[in-house]
C-alpha cells in the first residue's frame, strides 16, 4: 500500500510517451515492468508523480539477429524473454546467463531488459519503508542533505546492482534512446553517470528502446558470474562479466571486464584488462590477477566485508575470464 498519489498515462505510441515525459520533466518516470518502480512507490521514495506506461506501445519487444551478425533486442522485452531466447543463448550466452539470474521467475516475467539496464541505485538507508526512514534525517537520495554511508565526503554512493548491464558492457553493446530530438545510440556504459543520486546519464524525456550487440569476433567468448547472498530473488553482491578474444596461438588477445555491485554505475576494469592482453588464460586461483583486481576496485561502500568482496572479485574475474576463454576455444574449433 502506498500513500503517494500518482497520475498514470498510457500512451499508445513512442512519440506520445516521449512528449509526456518531456511535458512533466523530473516529475515523470517511464513505467515498464514495474518490478523496481512499484517497490519504490510503496517505500515512498519515488519522486515521479506521473508514470508514463510503456505497456501499450506496440513493438520494441523483438529479439532478432542484425545484418552484421549481431543481436538487436527490444528494450521492452522481458528478462524471461531474453533469458530463454535461442538467439541470445546462442549469440550471447553471457547475456542470457545474466538475464536468467536477475530477480526470480515471477519478476523476470514482468521486468524488462530496458528496466534492468535503467535500474535505480540502491542503498541500506534509501530502500526502506517510510517508517524506517522517518526515524532519522533524510538521506540525500531521499531528498535530504546527508549521506550516512559516506559521511566524510557526504556524496551519495548508492550501488548500481543490475545484472544484465555488466554482460552488455563486456560484449560492447550499444543502447538506442528515443527522445524529443530524435533517436541516438550510445555505448551501454555511457548510459551511466556514476552519480548515486541520478545514476542515468540519459535525458529525462529519453526512453531506452533497444540494445544492439555487435557480432562476436572470431575466437571470442563471454561469461557472466553472479555472487549474491541468496541464490534467487536477490541483487548481486558482485557480478562480473568477461569477454575475451583469443589469438590464433591460444593466448588472450584482448579482454573486456565489467563489474556490477561495486560503484554507482557498472564499471570496466581497465588495469586488469590491460594485464590480461597478450598472456595465457589464467590458472584457477591466479593470485597476481586476483590482487590486481582487488586493487582496481577502488573505494568500496555498502558492504560489511570489504576485504572479502575484494578477494571474491579476484576469484570471480579469473573464473569469468577462464569460462569466456573456454567458450572461445569451443567456438573456434566448431
Amino acid at each position: 500500500m502506498t500513500t503517494i498519489q500518482i497520475e498514470y498515462h498510457a500512451p499508445t505510441t513512442l512519440a506520445q510517451a516521449v512528449a509526456l515525459l518531456a511535458e512533466h520533466g523530473a516529475a515523470a518516470a517511464p513505467l515498464a515492468g514495474g518490478t523496481d518502480l512499484v517497490p519504490a512507490l510503496k517505500y515512498g521514495v519515488l519522486r515521479a508523480r506521473h508514470l508514463v506506461s510503456l505497456a501499450r506501445i506496440p513493438g520494441y519487444r523483438d529479439i532478432a539477429t542484425t545484418a552484421e551478425g549481431g543481436l538487436a533486442i527490444g528494450a521492452f522485452a522481458t528478462l524471461a524473454d531474453v533469458a530463454r531466447s535461442p538467439l541470445v543463448r546462442e549469440g550471447c550466452p553471457a547475456l542470457a546467463e545474466a538475464a536468467a539470474q536477475a530477480g526470480s521467475p515471477l519478476l523476470r516475467n514482468r521486468g524488462t531488459i530496458g528496466g534492468n539496464v535503467c535500474l535505480d541505485t540502491r542503498c541500506w538507508y534509501y530502500n526502506q519503508t517510510e517508517a524506517w526512514r522517518a526515524s532519522r534525517e533524510r538521506c540525500q537520495k531521499a531528498s535530504g542533505e546527508r549521506c550516512y554511508v559516506n559521511p566524510k565526503q557526504n556524496v551519495c554512493v548508492a550501488l548500481f546492482s543490475a545484472d544484465t548491464p555488466a554482460a552488455l558492457i563486456a560484449v560492447g553493446a550499444r543502447a538506442t534512446l528515443a527522445g524529443p530530438a530524435g533517436e541516438r545510440t550510445v555505448p551501454v556504459e555511457a548510459l551511466y553517470s556514476g552519480d548515486g543520486l541520478r545514476p542515468l546519464a540519459k535525458g529525462e524525456a529519453e526512453i531506452l528502446t533497444g540494445l544492439v550487440l555487435p557480432a562476436p569476433p572470431g575466437r571470442s567468448g563471454a561469461a557472466y558470474l553472479k555472487h549474491s547472498a541468496r541464490e534467487s530473488i536477490d541483487f548481486p553482491l558482485l557480478g562480473v562479466a568477461a569477454a575475451v578474444v583469443l589469438s590464433p596461438g591460444g593466448t588472450i588477445a584482448s579482454a573486456r571486464l565489467a563489474v556490477t555491485g561495486v560503484r554507482s554505475a557498472p564499471c570496466r576494469l581497465p588495469e586488469v584488462e590491460a594485464a590480461l592482453a597478450g598472456r595465457q588464460i589464467p590458472a584457477e586461483g591466479d593470485r597476481e590477477l586476483g590482487r590486481l583486481t582487488a586493487r582496481s576496485l577502488g573505494a568500496l561502500f555498502l558492504t560489511e566485508a570489504v576485504p572479502h568482496k575484494r578477494h571474491l572479485a579476484g576469484l570471480m574475474v579469473v573464473e569469468a575470464v577462464t569460462r569466456a576463454a573456454r567458450q572461445a576455444q569451443g567456438r573456434s574449433t566448431s
Binding site: L31, V38, P39, A55, L106, L107
Partner: peptide
C-alpha cells in the same frame, strides 16, 4: 497474467 506467473503486488491494476 496472460498465462505467465507474475507478482500481483508489483503490477499496478491499471497495467
Amino acid at each position: 497474467l496472460d498465462g505467465r506467473p507474475i507478482s500481483s503486488c508489483l503490477t499496478l491494476a491499471v497495467e
